[in-house]
Amino acid sequence: CHSECLGNCSQPDDPTKCVACRNFYLDGRCVETCPPPYYHFQDWRCVNFSFCQDLHHKCKNSRRQGCHQYVIHNNKCIPECPSGYTMNSSNLLCTPCLGPCPKVCHLLEGEKTIDSVTSAQELRGCTVINGSLIINIRGGNNLAAELEANLGLIEEISGYLKIRRSYALVSLSFFRKLRLIRGETLEIGNYSFYALDNQNLRQLWDWSKHNLTITQGKLFFHYNPKLCLSEIHKMEEVSGTKGRQERNDIALKTNGDQASCENELLKFSYIRTSFDKILLRWEPYWPPDFRDLLGFMLFYKEAPYQNVTEFDGQDACGSNSWTVVDIDPPLRSNDPKSQNHPGWLMRGLKPWTQYAIFVKTLVTFSDERRTYGAKSDIIYVQTDATNPSVPLDPISVSNSSSQIILKWKPPSDPNGNITHYLVFWERQAEDSELFELDYCLKGLKLPSRTWSPPFESEDSQKHNQSEYEDSAGECCSCPKTDSQILKELEESSFRKTFEDYLHNVVFVPRKT
C-alpha cells in the first residue's frame, strides 16, 4: 500500500485506493498535508475557505447554543480562536489581540433580562453583547459592586439597553466600559436606550469621564423622579442622539420631579488639616426662599486615587461607600458681607490618608415646582503625618564578641513616609551569675543571650482551647457569634421535631 494509506488498500502504491488515510483526505486521495488554498479540518480532512465560511455563517444565523462559528488559524479551520487571539470578521482569520481579548457573548432569543446578581454573573467577562440587555433589578445585597464585577467589562451592545423598574439602582456607572450601543435591534418605538419607572436612579454616568455613542435609535425617559433633566440632556449631547427624540420621548413632568437638581456650584473657602482632623468651610448658599434650606450634607471617604465619582458603590438597598454628615444651616444675616460661612470639623480620621470630599445642599421643593440647590466639586484632601507606631517583631542576635545583629519589621501604621529608623542602645553591667558559677561542674549549661522565638506554653494553649472559665478566673470563653447562636437554635429545633416524629412513629394507638 501507499505510504499515506492506513489499515489496508485495494490497489498497491495508489493513494486513492486506501481504506483510511494516515494524515489527511483531499478529493478522494490521501495526502501528507493540505496544500494551499485548503485548510486542515478536524485533523483528517482538507477543506477550502468557502466550506469553513459556510459553517461560520450557519452557526451565526441559527443562534443555536453550542454550535461553533468556525475560524481560520495556522492553516486550520477550527471552532474558535485560541487564547490571546480574536477573529477578523472580513476573512475569519485569528489575529493577536492588542491588550485583553474581546469576548463576544451571543444571547438566546436576542435579549437577556438581568433581574438578579445570579443572572448578571452569566455575563461575567463579556466585552461584546450580541443582542439586547434588559435591566430589571428590584433589590439585593452589595448590588453596585456585584454588577460592576460582572457587567463592568461590557464595551458594546449590538441591540438596545433597557432599564425598567430597577428600584435598587442609583447610577449606571457599573457599566464602566460601555462605549457603544449599535441599535441594530430596537425596542418598540425605535428606541435604543429605554429608561422607565426607576424610582431611585439619580445618575446615568459621570459624563466628564465617560463617552457613549448610540449609532441608531432614540432615547426614552419616563417616570424617573430623581433623575434630573440636565442629566438626560447631557446624554443626548454626548451620545449623538440630540435631535432624534420626539416631543413625548422625554417626559418633562415625570423626570426629576422629586430630585434636588443642583444648578449652582458650592466653593470651599477654608481648608485646614491635622493628622486626624480636617476643618472645612464653604461659601454660604440661600435659595430664593431661605426657609427652603434644610441644611447641608457632607460626604467623605478614603480615596487612594483621584478618580472618585459621587455615586460609586451606591445602591438604593443601603450600600453606600460614603460617610454622610448632616449639618444645620448657619444663622442668616441681613448683611451679605457678614454672612457666616458654614463648615464642619471632621474628626477621627487616619493620618497621612487622602480623602475625597464634597458637600451639597438639602432643600425642600418650592411652590413653583422649581428645584434649587448647590453642590461642590469633589475635592481631595490629605491629612498630615504623625509619629508612626512601633516597629514590629524586633530580633537581636550576637554573632561574635563585638557585634549584635538587630532586625525588625516595619510598623503596622507608618502614618507617613518613613525615611529612617533611630536605634538606641545602652551598655549593661555583666551578670554576677557568670562569676559565681563553678565551671568545672559536669552538665553545666552556660547562660545564653542568643534570641529564641517566643512560644506559647501548654497552660496558655489549654486556656485558649477551654470553653469555660478556669477556677483562677484568668480566662473566659469568647462570646458566641450570631451565626453560632442561630445554628444552635436550628439544631435544637431539629432535635425537638425529630423526637416528636419518633414518638408518633414508635407509639401507635392500640386498636379498641
Rank of each mutant, 00 (worst) to 15 (best):
K103N: 03
K103L: 08
V104R: 04
V104N: 02
C105T: 00
H106T: 11
L107F: 09
L108A: 13
L108Y: 05
E111R: 11
T113K: 12
I114N: 01
I114G: 00
D115V: 03
D115E: 00
D115F: 04
V117A: 15
T118G: 15
S119N: 09
S119V: 07
A120P: 03
Q121S: 08
L123T: 03
L123S: 02
R124L: 10
T127Y: 12
T127N: 05
T127P: 03
T127K: 14
V128T: 09
I129N: 00
G131W: 00
S132D: 06
S132L: 01
L133P: 00
L133V: 12
I134R: 05
I134P: 00
I134M: 10
I134L: 13
I135W: 11
I135C: 01
N136H: 10
N136K: 03
I137G: 11
R138Q: 15
R138W: 08
G139W: 06
G140C: 15
N141M: 12
N142W: 04
N142V: 10
L143I: 15
L143P: 05
A144E: 14
L147Y: 01
L147F: 13
L147V: 03
A149L: 07
A149V: 13
A149H: 08
A149M: 07
L151V: 14
G152W: 10
G152H: 09
L153K: 13
L153W: 14
I154V: 11
E155R: 15
E156L: 08
I157T: 02
I157A: 01
I157D: 00
S158C: 13
G159H: 02
Y160L: 04
Y160F: 12
Y160S: 13
Y160D: 01
K162F: 15
I163A: 04
A168L: 00
A168P: 15
V170P: 07
V170A: 13
S171I: 02
S171V: 02
L172W: 00
S173I: 07
S173G: 05
F174N: 02
F174K: 00
F175L: 10
R176D: 02
R176N: 07
R176W: 03
K177L: 05
L178K: 00
L178E: 00
R179K: 13
L180W: 15
I181K: 00
I181F: 01
I181N: 00
T185W: 08
L186N: 04
I188P: 06
G189R: 04
G189Y: 15
N190A: 14
N190H: 12
S192K: 01
Y194D: 10
A195R: 00
N198L: 05
N198M: 08
Q199S: 05
Q199G: 11
N200F: 12
N200P: 01
L201V: 05
L201F: 11
Q203D: 07
L204I: 09
D206C: 10
W207M: 05
K209Q: 06
H210T: 03
H210V: 11
H210L: 05
L212Y: 02
T213H: 15
T213L: 06
T213W: 05
I214E: 00
I214C: 10
T215S: 08
Q216I: 05
Q216P: 03
G217L: 01
G217T: 00
G217E: 01
G217K: 04
L219E: 02
L219P: 05
F220D: 10
F220W: 03
F221W: 03
H222K: 01
H222Y: 02
Y223W: 09
Y223T: 14
N224H: 15
N224M: 05
N224S: 02
P225H: 12
P225W: 05
K226W: 12
K226V: 14
K226F: 10
K226D: 09
K226P: 02
L227A: 03
L227G: 00
L229I: 02
S230P: 15
E231T: 12
E231R: 08
E231K: 03
E231M: 08
I232L: 14
H233C: 14
H233M: 01
K234H: 12
M235E: 00
E236C: 13
E236M: 06
E236G: 02
E237D: 15
V238L: 13
S239P: 02
T241Y: 11
K242E: 15
K242I: 09
K242P: 07
K242T: 06
Q245G: 15
Q245C: 09
Q245V: 06
E246S: 05
R247G: 04
N248G: 08
N248K: 13
D249Q: 03
D249R: 04
I250H: 06
I250K: 03
A251E: 05
L252K: 11
L252R: 11
L252E: 04
K253C: 06
K253W: 14
K253M: 14
K253R: 07
K253P: 10
K253L: 11
T254V: 05
N255W: 04
G256H: 04
G256F: 07
G256S: 11
D257Q: 02
Q258S: 14
Q258Y: 15
A259F: 06
S260R: 08
C261M: 02
E262W: 07
E262N: 12
E262F: 10
E262R: 10
E264Q: 12
E264K: 06
L266E: 00
L266S: 01
K267S: 11
F268V: 05
S269K: 07
T273H: 08
T273M: 12
T273C: 13
S274Q: 07
K277A: 12
K277W: 00
I278G: 00
I278K: 01
I278Q: 00
I278S: 00
L279K: 15
L280T: 14
R281A: 02
E283P: 05
E283Y: 05
E283R: 14
P284C: 02
P284E: 15
Y285E: 01
Y285K: 05
W286R: 10
W286E: 06
P287S: 06
P287V: 10
P287E: 08
P288L: 09
D289Y: 05
R291W: 09
R291N: 13
D292Q: 14
L293Q: 07
L294A: 07
L294T: 10
L294S: 07
G295P: 08
G295S: 05
F296R: 00
F296V: 08
F299D: 00
F299M: 13
Y300K: 02
Y300M: 14
Y300W: 04
Y300F: 04
Y300G: 01
K301T: 09
A303R: 06
P304A: 15
Y305S: 07
T309P: 05
E310T: 03
F311L: 05
D312A: 03
G313R: 10
G313N: 14
G313L: 07
G313K: 15
Q314K: 04
D315K: 15
D315L: 05
A316I: 01
A316P: 15
S319G: 12
S319I: 15
S321E: 13
W322A: 03
W322Y: 11
W322N: 02
T323Y: 06
V324E: 15
V325T: 14
D326N: 14
I327S: 03
I327K: 02
I327R: 02
D328E: 15
P329T: 09
P330K: 03
P330Q: 10
L331D: 14
R332K: 10
R332L: 04
R332N: 03
S333R: 13
D335V: 06
D335R: 13
D335P: 04
S338K: 10
Q339A: 10
N340F: 08
H341L: 09
H341W: 07
P342M: 12
P342V: 14
L345C: 05
R347A: 06
R347M: 05
L349Y: 00
L349W: 00
L349R: 02
L349F: 02
K350W: 14
K350T: 05
P351T: 04
P351Y: 10
W352H: 10
W352Q: 15
W352N: 08
W352P: 00
W352S: 11
T353C: 00
T353S: 11
T353G: 01
T353K: 09
Q354T: 07
Y355K: 00
I357V: 12
F358W: 11
F358M: 06
K360P: 00
K360L: 06
T361P: 01
L362T: 05
T364N: 15
F365R: 14
F365V: 09
E368K: 14
R369L: 12
R369W: 13
R370V: 11
R370T: 12
R370P: 09
T371N: 09
Y372K: 12
G373A: 02
G373M: 02
G373D: 08
G373H: 02
A374S: 05
A374E: 03
A374L: 06
S376D: 00
S376G: 02
D377M: 05
D377R: 11
D377T: 11
D377H: 04
I378C: 10
I378S: 01
I378K: 03
I379M: 14
Y380T: 15
Y380H: 01
V381F: 02
V381S: 04
Q382R: 12
T383W: 00
T383E: 00
T386M: 09
T386G: 02
V390H: 15
V390S: 02
P391D: 02
D393E: 09
P394E: 04
I395H: 13
S400W: 12
S400Y: 15
S400A: 14
S401E: 10
S401H: 13
S401N: 13
S401K: 09
S402C: 04
Q403L: 09
I404V: 14
K409W: 12
K409H: 03
K409A: 13
K409T: 14
P410R: 07
